[in-house]
Design a protein around this nucleic acid. Structure first.
Lengths: 184, 184
DNA sequence: GGTTGCATGTAAATGGTTACATGATTGT
DNA sequence: ACAATCATGTAACCATTTACATGCAACC
């Protein structure tokens, strides 16, 4: 899904500014299965505006910068609904943490511990932020929210139960990476 | 992690051609937490070769196209180990499936069913492909492999247990998306 | 006869991130 | 005084994807 479609999706929940769209994507009570930065959201909103998929209204706020609040138009709703019927790309997940932990034997013990604890904390925080009120949230969104929670909990659980395996000094003598040595 | 680092990582396991590197990333017994296509792998290998991080040897095969087998050099090992100590980008996950299911109310029942069943099947297959032999696999790789399995299993479990919630006809009358209607 | 698998590679286009620019207000 | 939050936007840069090009062998 490109950023334009993601913006339309967020606007299906109600009017919002570019700034607010980004906040919802990264801080909202929902799993971050789609992301976007300012550098892509603002151009996307302008393009959507030109195409008549959204309308824009500037709202002056006392003591704050003015913001541009966007609303999805009927044409935008149709475009959005149709984009839900198009091809579905397969999931893509990339994790530097897991990539590094994959090669745990090449790391010294403190680095290993730091990485795994950071990683666990990241998902623990995410779970915490996802514990918001879900009244009024439609069933589809709830389903996805619940799936996110289930998966993140499984990850945290696994990390808690297997952390020691990775930190035990015994793995240091591994000969798996012939030629490789722990780097400081 | 850029594709160059990913290639070095795969070559830490042993010599391989560009084609084989790609196969390992997408079909290997390991979770796909890093991906790369031919279009990025081949240029990466050439750059690594020029930089002295890998060496290349052409292997002629009877009845098959010749392949270029790459080996990581000592300099490559050092570069790789160092890259494991650099900044760790946070995970990024994007899913068209979850994005679409998030807006389940906008979809007709057959499409909803198709999406969710496809999604479940995708992860069920992945779990199946991950059940390979792990003897000789280093502890770090095992840890990541196990984490992947745990997470994918949690996802499949959740889907099985909540599938009906999403398919029940009751959600069709939802007023959540005022102005929106299921599209055919 | 058509598709899949093996095998490499280039070029263009896409899409997104990063860095920069601006500026007021609120909290520490 | 300094950092963070609110708020928008542009431009350069980067990485990756997609499409194209080539060709043989095996299988159905």
């Amino acid at each position: 899904m490109d950023v334009k479609t993601v913006c339309l999706g967020v606007l299906m929940f109600g009017d919002a500014s570019g700034y607010e769209i980004r906040k919802m994507l990264e801080e909202g009570p929902f799993p971050h299965f789609q992301e976007a930065g300012f550098g892509s959201i603002y151009p996307a909103l302008r393009a959507l505006s030109r195409a008549g998929q959204v309308t824009c209204q500037e709202v002056v706020q006392p003591g704050r910068p003015a913001k541009k609040v966007y609303s999805i138009t009927p044409a935008g709703r149709i475009t959005f609904a149709r984009s839900l019927l198009g091809d579905t790309a397969r999931d893509r997940y990339r994790s530097d943490y897991l990539f590094k932990l994959f090669f745990a034997e090449l790391l010294d013990a403190p680095t290993r511990a730091r990485l795994i604890d950071e990683y666990g904390a990241l998902y623990r925080d995410l779970i915490g932020r996802m514990k918001g009120d879900l009244t009024g949230v439609p069933e589809g969104a709830r389903f996805v929210h619940g799936l996110g929670l289930a998966v993140y909990r499984a990850a945290v659980d696994y990390i808690d139960r297997n952390r020691d395996r990775l930190l035990s000094p015994s793995i240091e003598e591994s000969t798996a990476w012939s030629g490789g040595e722990a780097v400081k």
